[in-house]
Design a protein around this nucleic acid. Structure first.
Length: 914
RNA sequence: GCCGACUUAGCUCAGUGGUAGAGCACUCGCUUCACACGCGAUAGGUCACAAGUUCAAAUCUUGUAGUCGGCACCA
């Protein structure tokens, strides 16, 4: 069989995905077992404007690993894909396109046309991420792909909105909201980020008190808002200002008089102890204003320029220009006390980084008090979704819920779910599922629908059940019954509040189920500089580039290997480790296949019977142990542990030892003549044993490929297809009639009965001997081509093991012959070593460097003595011997005895050198 | 200000009560017929610091320092 010398990921990545998809392998319906248990995951919908970033790549890898393994185990498995409509982002893209191509604004073309264009944009550019997911190898059921603006999901949104409104959970009201002047829409608290600015200024303004020559000084970071001030507040207990309470201030730059009021909110210790109150431009001031019935004067337009309420001099000015001008004017009036440098943190729009303006505005809100109770109740409940890692996420989640504010859900956009509310001419509002219903309610046709659309996260909040067909009209579907709640939600820390919590609440409220059983919170993949990857920092790493450079499989298993839950710094060098690993797997398979003539995968060879050698029993044992541990690790979301186990098994056990140990017995030249064969010569197995050995190694390889498949789907499929005589016999029983692919092969669980500790110990004895001799060779700088006899002293039982593995020892230690005896009888010019069951000598007449050998042995004695010292210290502690478990004590005693034995031998050897 | 996480070999990280681990980098030796994306052999750590619990602490408790994150405040 011709196989390339190195693994070429691109080749393997080209065809398999299409074949899997075409064969329906991703669909739960492929499972023919009517009693199969289900396993389901719904993807956190990526933003339709987005492209794959490292966080997606990580999360998708984990979801795919989970899904693929369960599918192989015969579960009725569904991983449901989808995207969200990303209101603001898409709106911005379309606005930009309009401006660039036609120099038009949305208003020029009207709402209907704008939405038509947005859909067109979505059709044209919205598939980037879904295409990239195919490259990732994501085994999602594309036939169930959902988009938050699909008809049914939109129906669900209207239903939920109306129900919540009818039950009093949704209200419309005038509140201080976060306003993005660039996007000209309101934002929820969670879409606003804080940015610390060191060059802020705290400006002290003096306000003259009416009928007095006193002035009262207020401090502010936003001087322009003073144009909307309607009071100055002081603490009622503040002696400095007590006498001023109730008096009026002549507000500079305006013709208004505003009162000095007393309110507990004011902290006398901070600033001047007097606070300007601008109810229309500050949330705290708004509260104060409510308590004191203050007027609310809005001084800004929706683009953050000043409006006519700000006065003639300021109208039309940008807020920052207005700020400068206010300060200048105060200076002219002699009322500017001072300006201090001040470190300030500013709220900015998460997407466009524009400074958000708190502003009084009429919006739609979801009341969160009852929602919060639902959510808190949910996490206290025994069946609550479990967070992984549990700490700190469950705690953070609870803490956040406890001081949750109402959620602003309206957005001043056109792209999204238009709010199903209509106004009559008097401004009365009618919330209804359809226009027809609204008309019936209003008793008139003269209605105008609410312009605003809903926050994208409102529809995302329904994702756990709207994706399964629930839309209010249809409340029960087969998918919902079968797949909800999903088994696990895999997501990042950043959207626990924004999305996870809301989804939990909504799911409980509308389908009375928990949304998912587990919540796996992944760490953040940070840039090389240890900071989150971002475009502005330029420290991002593009997963697609990594796929091109190292292969999809290497990237996937690398990502799985770092999925500990903690944040992780990106490191190219580590991906390389797994690129190398992929190549190692390729080459191990290449070796097996080059010597597979006549052989076939045969599960019945994975037995600990008398035909199996020690090496066979050992590798079968290791395979089963590994399979057990890998399953346990994945069950508990310890992906890094699963990867470590697989890496160690495949490289250290299978490649480094097993292949080397059986090499001669399976390869062409050995069995009969021991001479190398000619290229053209017959490659058929020479003996029945050789045939069996060839089949056995193929079978072990095949098992390993299955175990690796969830992590490295392409490589494993590519190799599995090359194996001789693989067939659907290897499939899980649920897929007997399905296409032949490793992705439906039965996932090995590991069989306790096939774990043989004795074979492990015996193998270790052989490995120890080989390692010791290799050490001697390296330290004595013996040429690889030089061959020497090896003398081994051991008891009868150990001798049997060495005899059975004589050929292997000779080959791997590059020795000429093995001399076994009860005791050593060798020339003085020998290098010596000792293992737990054997004493080894390599006669090196004329080659031995006595000084070096002495140093080598002394080094080993020193190591042993150091260990022995530690152990003896423990053993001489009476408390330890009395109180520690007897088993532990015995363990140490045994070890000490062994060390002393070995030390003794080494010391004798040292003596002999003199 | 409150809460949390982290601090282990040069680097990136595993390791939740019983003799300190991996990968990469470093040193030495190998083009040995699967693989130089490789093979073999070394070297490298008072597990941030301090106290406590325990027969036994990298691991549990408390405190300190540093780093990072979340939340609150920010006139």
């Amino acid at each position: 069989m011709e196989i390339a010398k190195a693994y070429n990921p691109k080749e393997a990545e080209e065809s398999h995905y299409q074949k899997w998809e075409a064969a329906g392998c991703f669909k739960p319906e492929l499972n023919e077992n009517p009693n199969a248990e289900k396993y389901s995951i719904v993807i956190p919908p990526p933003n339709v404007t987005g492209s794959l970033h490292m966080g997606h790549a990580l999360q998708h890898t984990l979801m795919d690993v989970l899904t693929r393994r369960k599918r192989m185990q015969g579960f009725k498995t569904l991983w449901l894909p989808g995207t969200d409509h990303a209101g603001i982002s898409v709106q911005r893209k379309v606005v930009e396109q309009l401006r660039k191509d036609e120099n038009k604004s949305p208003l020029d073309i009207g709402r209907e046309e704008f939405i038509r264009r947005a859909w067109k944009w979505k059709e044209e550019y919205g598939n980037t991420i879904t295409e990239q997911m195919r490259r990732e190898g994501a085994s999602v059921d594309w036939s169930r792909h959902r988009f938050t603006m699909d008809e049914s999901l939109s129906r669900a949104v209207r239903e939920v909105f109306c129900t919540l409104y009818e039950e009093g959970w949704i209200y419309r009201g005038l509140r201080i909201v976060n306003w993005c002047p660039k996007d000209k829409t309101v934002l929820s608290d969670l879409e606003v980020k804080e940015e610390t600015k060191k060059d802020g200024k705290l400006t002290y303004l003096q306000y003259p008190v009416k009928n007095s020559d006193r002035k009262i000084t207020v401090a502010t970071t936003r001087p322009e808002t003073m144009l909307g001030d309607t009071a100055v507040a002081v603490n009622p207990k503040d002696e400095r200002y007590k006498d001023l309470i109730g008096q009026m201030i002549e507000l500079p730059l305006t013709d208004r008089e505003i009162p000095i009021i007393a309110d507990e909110y004011v902290d006398s210790e901070f600033g001047t102890g007097a606070v300007k109150i601008t109810p229309a431009h500050d949330p705290n001031d708004y509260q104060v204003g409510e308590r004191h019935n203050l007027p609310q004067i809005l001084v800004m337009n929706d683009d953050a320029t000043m409006n006519e309420n700000a006065g003639e001099e300021f109208v039309g000015l940008d807020r920052f220009k207005a700020r400068e001008k206010v300060v200048e004017k105060f200076e002219e009036l002699g009322l500017l006390e001072k300006q201090d440098d001040y470190e300030i943190s500013l709220p900015v729009c998460e997407r466009c980084k524009t400074i958000v303006e708190p502003i009084l505005s009429e919006q739609w809100f979801v009341k969160m008090d009852e929602m919060r109770d639902i959510a808190l109740e949910l996490v206290k409940n025994e069946n609550a979704p479990r967070f992984f890692p549990e700490v700190p996420h469950a705690k953070v989640y609870t803490a956040w819920l406890e001081n949750l504010k109402d959620w602003t859900i309206s957005r001043q956009l056109w792209w999204g779910h238009q709010i199903p509310a209509w106004y009559d001419e008097q401004g009365n509002v009618f919330v209804a599922r359809t226009f027809e219903e609204a008309k019936a309610q209003a008793g008139t046709e003269n209605l105008k629908q609410e312009n605003d659309v809903l926050d994208t996260w409102f529809s995302s909040g329904l994702w756990a059940f709207s994706t399964f067909g629930w839309n209010g009209e249809i409340t029960e579907t087969e998918d919902l019954n079968t797949f909800a709640p999903t088994d696990v939600l895999v997501t990042g820390r950043d959207i626990i509040f924004l999305w996870v919590s809301r989804m939990m609440m909504m799911t409980k409220k509308f389908v009375n189920k928990i949304a998912f059983n587990d919540v796996l919170v992944t760490g953040t993949v940070l840039g090389k500089d240890g900071k989150p990857m971002s475009k502005s920092r330029g420290n991002g790493v593009d997963p697609i580039e990594m796929f091109d450079k190292f292969g999809v499989d290497a990237t996937r298993i690398y990502l799985a290997s770092i999925a500990t839950g903690a944040d992780i710094k990106w490191n190219d060098l580590l991906i390389e480790t797994y690129r190398n690993f992929a190549n190692k797997i390729w080459n191990a398979a290449r070796f097996c296949l080059m010597n597979s003539e006549g052989a076939s995968v045969d599960i019945s060879l994975l037995k600990l019977d008398e035909n199996a050698t020690i090496a066979d029993k050992w590798i079968i044992s290791r395979l089963n142990k590994t399979a057990q541990a890998v399953n346990k690790a994945i069950d508990t979301y310890q992906f890094h542990e699963a990867v470590r186990l697989l890496y160690q098994f495949f490289w250290n056990d299978f490649c480094d030892w097993y292949i080397e140990l059986v090499k001669d017995s399976i390869s062409e030249q050995s069995a009969v003549s021991g001479e190398p064969t000619e290229e053209a010569e017959d490659r058929r197995p020479k003996t029945k044993d050789q045939l069996e050995a060839r089949s056995r190694i193929l079978t072990i390889l095949e098992q390993a490929l299955r175990l690796l498949h969830p992590f490295m789907p392409y490589l494993t499929e590519e190799l599995w297809q090359k194996l001789p005589n693989v067939s659907s016999d290897l499939h899980n029983a649920a897929y007997k009639n399905a296409a032949q692919t490793v992705m439906l092969a039965d996932f090995p669980l590991g069989d306790e009965k096939l774990i043989d500790e004795r074979a492990g110990a015996e193998m270790q004895a052989v490995i120890d001997v080989i390692s010791k001799i290799r050490n001697i060779r390296a330290e004595m700088q013996i040429k690889p081509s030089d061959r020497f006899p090896i003398h081994i002293a051991a008891d009868a039982e150990a001798q049997k093991i060495f005899t059975a593995n004589e050929a292997q020892i000779l080959k791997l230690a590059r020795a000429e012959k093995l001399v076994l005896a009860e005791t050593l009888d060798v020339p003085k010019a020998s290098a010596k070593a000792v293992t737990s069951v054997a004493e080894i000598a390599v006669p090196l007449e004329g080659l031995i460097d006595f000084e070096k050998e002495t140093a080598r042995l002394e080094n080993q004695v020193a190591k042993l003595e150091k260990e022995s010292e530690q152990l003896n210290k423990q053993l001489s502690n009476a408390n330890f011997v009395d109180r520690a478990p007897a088993e532990k004590v015995q363990e140490l005693r045994d070890r000490v005895a062994e060390i002393e034995n070995q030390t003794q031998t080494l010391k004798q050897n040292l003596e002999a050198l003199k």
